[in-house]
């Protein structure tokens, strides 16, 4: 895309784009660190995730401010308008990813007391690495403007949902086996739920990134698998 007649307009758009990339990179780090801290009971690392979240919040406020100023000053049109509006939305999803990662980090202490059973740790680890890849990829596809990759990435969220369902069942089994597991397992269940929610935010980001690049919306429906819903949980 060519440059604007008014060069400072390009600078302002570039600055907003850079903030999205920064927030994206930070969110990927936070997700990776939070799960690593959880699985290795690494309290200092968990603390870092918690303090990173403050940086994430500050960046989002910065982006909001820049985006609103740009709209007021430039009245952007077409792809510029899409870029600014979607940046606001993507920033809010990235900020939520930060919150969820922080929430996982906060549980590290509570889970740490009791050792996580090996097979379960493995399940959570593999779910977390799926989620981490999704976060990393969506940010990379946005940064490299690879819109053609986004529909598949969004569809891949289903794999996370399937993992989540499996972990949910596994955790139930441990809790039934020994009630002393309940505290730790409940915390782990929240962690798994947080990871699943992060996956959902990634799909939102993918949809917004696709819209920025193409001007078209991805189809509304996406296959959903959540077998933990009412009937199963009750059964």
């Amino acid at each position: 895309m060519g440059e604007h007649t008014v060069a400072s307009f390009d600078e302002e758009l570039g600055s907003i784009d850079q903030l999205i990339r920064d927030m994206g990179a930070l969110s990927a780090t936070m997700v990776a660190d939070a799960t690593r801290a959880l699985l290795s009971s690494d309290n200092p690392l968990a603390q870092r995730v918690i303090s990173d979240d403050a940086i994430m919040d500050a960046k989002q406020r910065e982006l909001d401010e820049q985006a609103i100023t740009l709209i007021a000053r430039r009245q952007p049109m077409a792809q510029d308008l899409r870029a600014v509006v979607s940046a606001i939305r993507m920033a809010s999803d990235l900020e939520r990813i930060g919150d969820l990662a922080k929430n996982i980090a906060k549980r590290v202490g509570a889970v740490g007391q009791s050792a996580t059973p090996k097979p379960l740790a493995h399940s959570i680890d593999s779910m977390a690495s799926l989620v981490h890849d999704q976060v990393k990829n969506v940010v990379a596809f946005y940064a490299e403007r690879r819109s053609e990759e986004l529909p598949a990435l969004r569809a891949d969220d289903e794999k996370i949902d399937i993992k989540y369902t499996a972990i949910f069942r596994e955790l139930l089994t441990y809790m039934m086996e020994d009630p002393r597991n309940i505290t730790a397992c409940t915390h782990l269940l929240f962690c798994a739920k947080n990871l699943e929610r992060i996956g959902d935010h990634v799909t939102n980001i993918a949809e917004n990134a696709y819209y920025v690049m193409t001007g078209r919306q991805l189809p509304m429906s996406r296959p959903r698998v959540d077998e933990t819903a009412v009937s199963d949980a009750a059964g």
Partner: peptide
């Protein structure tokens, strides 16, 4: 036309990228 124009020249004009 103002959110997703098809033609490059329209895009350039309405976004302020015309020389």
């Amino acid at each position: 036309m103002f959110t997703n124009p098809d033609d490059k020249r329209t895009q350039d004009y309405i976004t302020g990228r015309f020389g």
